[in-house]
């Protein structure tokens, strides 16, 4: 996209895939967080040739801002189609920001069982953490202003792109 100050999402995904390749094995279970994280996890799952089927999480029921913002519309169904007990889980999200989404995702995962280990892969780390959470695999670190946010988009052909937007307080919005 002309004038897009952000790096190309496809090449970030390629380098993220390379970083993860040596770290996955037969007990690795990939879990994508809706919506962007699921797109990425689908691509990573195919590229890494993982054996366990892909898991998806919608963390709406575990968010810490429910009492302020209420329930988001269009809640998706979480689906973990493998046994979490003893599994080597990698959570996949598009943009790592405050860490609150990841906190919620970990809490939800533990309601499915006791994983052996949980790691985190994010396409973009924009800093601004509010919890002691760090990613194990990152596509790129990008610094942007507090009022802005980075969104992952997917076009009809399945190509991924990053978009810089002004943050707005809506129920559709994720919490980073």
């Amino acid at each position: 996209m002309p004038g897009n100050p952000l790096p190309d999402a496809e090449s970030l995904l390629a380098s993220l895939t390379d970083r993860m390749r040596p770290a996955v094995g037969p007990t690795t279970g990939l879990v994508g967080i809706y919506t962007g994280g699921v797109w990425l996890a689908e691509r990573l799952h195919a590229a890494l040739g993982l054996k366990l089927p892909l898991g998806t999480l919608d963390v709406s029921f575990y968010r810490d801002d429910f009492s302020r913002k209420g329930l988001r519309r269009n809640v998706k169904s979480s689906d973990i189609p493998f046994d979490i007990d003893g599994c080597d889980v990698i959570i996949v999200d598009d943009v790592l920001y405050t860490g609150r989404t990841i906190r919620a995702a970990m809490n939800e995962l533990f309601d499915y069982g006791r994983p052996e280990r949980i790691r985190l892969a994010a396409l973009v780390d924009r800093g601004g953490r509010e919890l002691p959470i760090a990613a194990d695999f990152v596509g790129a670190e990008i610094a942007i202003a507090a009022g802005e946010s980075i969104e992952l988009k997917r076009d009809t052909a399945g190509r991924l792109a990053l978009e810089l937007t002004q943050e707005q307080v809506t129920k559709e919005q994720g919490q980073g």
């Binding site: 029921f61 329930l71 689906d79 533990f110 309601d111 499915y112």
Partner: peptide, 12 residues
């Protein structure tokens, strides 16, 4: 989906 899990509870 939640009611089919091992822990049938969410903290909402």
């Amino acid at each position: 989906g939640v009611t089919q899990r091992e822990v049938k509870k969410v903290p909402l």
